[in-house]
Amino acid sequence: MRPALSRLWAARVARFAPVALAVLMASSLQAQEPQRIVSIGGSVTEIVYALGEQDRLVARDTTSNFPEEVSQLPDIGYIRRLSPEGVLSMNPSLILTEEGAGPPEAVELLEAASIEFAEIPAGYDREAVLTKIRRVAEVLSVPEKGEALAAEVAADLDDAAEVAAKEAGAAPRRVLFVLSMQGGRIMAGGTDTAAEGVIRLAGGVNAVTGFEGYKPLSDEAIIAAAPDVILMMARGGEMGVSDEDLFAQPAILSTPAGETRSVLRMDGMKMLGFGPRTAEAVVELAHALAGD
């Protein structure tokens, strides 16, 4: 793997009245504070830091948890459960968000707030990462920085692809991504998801292809998927799933992954964010799938 990967981060560091009031406050300060950016979505926030433009940030969402110093910024909530009042209370001159922010009515209010609102397109392949970087840099008026970062990340992704191809060999492993397990039901990642994207880049095969997005699987579907490996996010709390709970499921135990108790856990934002650290995630997953 190129040394650039390890240097990448070391080198860079009913409710309408309150909304209307916040809009007026934000609009009045826009000319005075043109650098006030609220960043919504972990990957775009990482890109802002990678571009060296983090001093312009005044707030971030809950999924923006890397690099560590971003936690010092105010948290305006989860990307899919935004409060317009909370966002506008930061008096932003720019709202920078990943595609998919919500709920829709909150986004509509933010877009109507006479504040620049930039939505960065999603995608789950090499080109999507580079497009994100260039688009964020364009919005921040630093296109030269964007091209330099895109070139570095592109080279890292190419190196990661070589590692993945070497590790996968002739028999790619079937991977079942488990997003959560609630009430004994497995919520898995199907097609057109970040989970499928990183699995593919790492040389694996998504074990579930019968639907798009993330959906609950029946026991029969789990058994038919026949995964060699279970892939999950490393997290605790209410959303965490222990190995004991996972392999207590009879359907999971009936799969090759269950028989060998093969489960991999990775940092969720690095694995699914499709930002500057995607090459790291691909190499890490490729090695793990190969049993290194």
Rank of each mutant, 00 (worst) to 15 (best):
142 V>Y: 02
142 V>I: 09
143 P>M: 03
143 P>H: 00
143 P>R: 07
143 P>Q: 09
144 E>P: 00
144 E>A: 15
144 E>Q: 14
144 E>T: 13
144 E>M: 11
144 E>H: 12
145 K>V: 01
145 K>D: 12
145 K>E: 11
145 K>M: 09
145 K>Q: 13
145 K>G: 15
146 G>E: 04
146 G>Y: 07
146 G>P: 07
147 E>Y: 08
147 E>C: 12
147 E>S: 08
147 E>V: 15
147 E>H: 15
148 A>L: 04
148 A>H: 05
148 A>G: 06
148 A>W: 07
149 L>H: 07
149 L>R: 06
149 L>M: 05
149 L>A: 03
150 A>D: 03
150 A>K: 05
151 A>L: 15
151 A>P: 11
151 A>M: 12
151 A>R: 14
151 A>Y: 10
152 E>P: 02
152 E>D: 10
154 A>D: 12
154 A>Q: 12
154 A>M: 07
154 A>W: 08
155 A>L: 07
155 A>R: 01
155 A>Y: 00
155 A>D: 10
155 A>Q: 05
156 D>K: 06
156 D>C: 15
156 D>F: 12
156 D>R: 13
156 D>H: 09
157 L>T: 00
157 L>C: 06
158 D>H: 05
158 D>N: 03
159 D>N: 09
159 D>G: 07
159 D>A: 14
159 D>C: 01
159 D>W: 07
160 A>Y: 09
160 A>I: 13
160 A>P: 05
160 A>V: 13
160 A>M: 06
160 A>H: 12
161 A>T: 08
161 A>C: 10
161 A>R: 11
161 A>V: 03
162 E>T: 13
162 E>S: 13
162 E>W: 09
162 E>Q: 13
162 E>M: 08
163 V>E: 07
163 V>D: 12
163 V>G: 11
163 V>N: 09
163 V>F: 05
163 V>I: 08
163 V>Q: 11
164 A>C: 05
164 A>G: 02
165 A>K: 11
165 A>Y: 07
165 A>G: 11
165 A>V: 11
165 A>D: 10
166 K>E: 09
166 K>L: 10
166 K>T: 09
166 K>I: 12
166 K>N: 11
167 E>T: 09
167 E>W: 08
168 A>L: 01
168 A>R: 01
168 A>V: 05
168 A>N: 02
168 A>M: 00
169 G>T: 03
169 G>A: 07
169 G>F: 05
169 G>L: 02
169 G>W: 06
170 A>N: 13
170 A>C: 05
171 A>V: 04
172 P>M: 01
173 R>Y: 04
173 R>A: 02
173 R>S: 01
173 R>V: 00
173 R>H: 05
173 R>C: 00
174 R>M: 08
174 R>I: 02
174 R>C: 10
